[in-house]
Amino acid sequence: MTIRKGKAGDAGRVRRPEAGAGRAPNRASAAAAAKPAKATAAASKAKASKEANVSDAVAHAVKVGYDVIAENIRQGREAAERFRQGEYRLRDAPGDLEVASHRLLRLARELSTTTFDVCERLLKELGDQRAPPDRTTEVPRFRDSAPFATVKPSQSASAAPPGPAPLKVTVRFEGAPKAISHTDALTRPRLPTAASGVTSAPLAPSGGRGAPITDVRFELDASVDGIVAIVSPPKGQATGVYSGIVHAKGDPLPLGVLTIELLK
């Protein structure tokens, strides 16, 4: 930083200059932007020399500014690369980061159940849709991180990881005051699938008699775990058990059968 000496001014008060007056520089060169537009004819040689020093100082500041952001971006890229390649370990991070991470986890647990559930559901949903390669075998699962949870003796490190958990299904009925669902879970789609990509065949009545229920759709709802099926039986639909095969878009294997019962 180049230092320049100036005249003593009034103590304590600095008047704010007019908005923008003489302050915004030329975009072609940020450093040159801070140089005075032109020296006035009345300016003394000494003053011009001083101005040149100021410009040098500001040009240096801009260079330092670019160095700082370049270094930050470089560090960010290195960190991103570590994450992407699955090389990241908590113990590789500086001690303060590990402590801070544990504090954050503890803080999350101390907050209300609702907000914590939101966080965990978000992580789950993302995990369901895009599982990062190899990390599951290298990094402890979120819930199992010491010191907040203990690993059961039967869960040795060499044990095969469990298969994908079933996809919970909450069935909601529109326009049918009395109905129940006999399905509470489906097989999880093998490919990343949005809720709108899950479809059900028309729910056919048990025994094959009567009209099927065709209005069935699937949605995500942050307030419940898993996926929500919205079933809208037409008015006057006969009571009884109805079922239909559920598919995920692009997957020929069905996820299961959705079975509901309209009651009297």
Binding site: I3, R4, G6, R23, P25, S29, A34
Partner: peptide, 18 residues
């Protein structure tokens, strides 16, 4: 004020805006 710190900061702010 006397040592030009405020003017310097003002000029650096303008350069950063540039």
């Amino acid at each position: 004020q006397r040592l030009g710190s405020i003017d310097h900061a003002r000029e650096v702010a303008a350069a950063m805006a540039g």
